[in-house]
Design a protein around this nucleic acid. Structure first.
Lengths: 239, 239
DNA sequence: CGCAGGGTTGACTGTTTTCAATTTATGTGG
DNA sequence: CCACATAAATTGAAAACAGTCAACCCTGCG
């Protein structure tokens, strides 16, 4: 769920580099999760306000997490990819909705069962705290983006955080975009049209190259980093 | 740090109703915090990127937590009031800066000491997880506000969350505002001028009454709730 | 082959920003 | 305690960036 630029570290040696899924696997918890469950593209996984019965782990595919306003405005809170968790809340109701944006496979676990596991497993508690703090950090970076960045800065930041999340090999500048322009717009607090125009703008400046298969090649990562940070002056326009 | 509309509950009976300060007091941890330290209005408490040596608890006063961009744009991430914690991060560096917006008294504790306490104290771990998840929830509500609400909706939401945070007696509609218009603007992703204009607008609609002493009386809470939720249609303009 | 959904581009509108002037608070020193 | 200086807040007018409405294009799939 979500992603961020920030590097990770530790408070009391928390295993922050691992996903929650890794952690649960690593701690070898028997039968904790159900068998894999498949969801079709666009299918709803959980809804804000519903009783929070389960938490889910993404096995494959991509999920959008979002909040809606009564009149249909939507804010995407984050995207969840394989290894990410969704459905956790302190409350007994879900805090946001989740839908599959591609065919998705999930495993889930009852809330009470997770609570029981947490009581027993110290390492899992640490992993859960680390996960939550990482999500908080990501959310706060997103607050800066939504409150203070313009469209170009938002899109550059988005592409770079996606890159960081997806490609651990630093040389691969090739980004498959699982989500539509509308999803990107609802994540960045823009409209579909503005996202499309901004992509065209970055393409015109030779910073990115949109490919036919819903993926984008990042041609100038330092340039994008300048834009994302708000140093627009240093990026030269070319004819 | 921050505040939200959402009611609180429990995952595995976490003591979420308590602040971290309450929790630490409740668990009767001897000598954990230093003696109170005073900060003058506008004084810096900690800075983003600095080595995160300590966490702090607000004893009195109010603090703003924020991120800056290179060109001076500022996003306020949240406000901290008595009982709130600041300076916690997974990373070994602070994730945002903090400044006193009034004369402030804090107590602090070394990072390593907190880590040691956490190793020993199960209840404290639960409290810390609960605190972090509550902050995450608040941040996600703020993402919806920053990404999708207009100026009137932002200000109404802000006033209502402040009310909820400050007045546990539900009948007192009187809000002391510790922060300036500029602070409010930087929290809501607006400019000072727009905040001022929007306050005038709500005043003209008899929804609020700004008083001389930097406080605001909420004259029509249901009306503000409609606005905050985005049901602008139901709020009638009056001459 | 043609339809439907997603995407791009254009022209125009509108909300918020920017720049600027004025009024109202706040705080300090005489 | 008043007077001045300075900061905060309000209000106005103009500009800008993103939004809206609309037409068109592309692509994948039945």
């Amino acid at each position: 769920m979500g992603f961020s630029n920030s590097q990770e570290s530790h408070l009391a040696d928390l295993p922050t580099a691992l996903t929650i899924a890794d952690s649960i696997r690593h701690h070898n918890l028997p039968g904790a999760f159900t068998e894999p469950v498949a969801y079709a593209k666009e299918q709803s996984i959980l809804s804000e306000g519903e009783l929070a019965t389960d938490i889910h782990i993404v096995v494959s595919g991509a999920v959008r997490l979002f909040k809606m306003m009564p009149d249909g405005r939507r804010q995407i809170i984050g995207f969840a990819f394989p290894g990410d968790m969704l459905g956790l809340s302190l409350d007994d109701r879900y805090l946001h909705s989740a839908e599959a944006i591609s065919p998705v496979i999930l495993r889930h676990m009852g809330r009470r069962q997770l609570a029981a596991l947490l009581e027993r497993d110290h390492g899992l508690r640490k992993a859960l705290l680390a996960w939550t703090m990482t999500e908080l950090q990501i959310a706060q970076d997103q607050m800066l983006l939504l409150g203070r960045k313009d469209a170009t800065e938002r899109l550059s930041s988005f592409l770079l955080t996606l890159l960081q999340r997806r490609n651990h090999s630093t040389e691969d500048r090739h980004l498959p975009l699982a989500m539509t322009r509308t999803d990107i717009a609802d994540y960045l607090g823009l409209t579909m049209e503005t996202v499309s125009r901004t992509i065209s703008l970055l393409k015109g400046r030779r910073l990115i190259r949109p490919l036919a298969d819903h993926s984008i090649e990042l041609l100038n990562v330092p340039g994008l980093q300048d834009l994302a940070a708000g140093n627009a002056i240093t990026v030269q326009l070319d004819p």
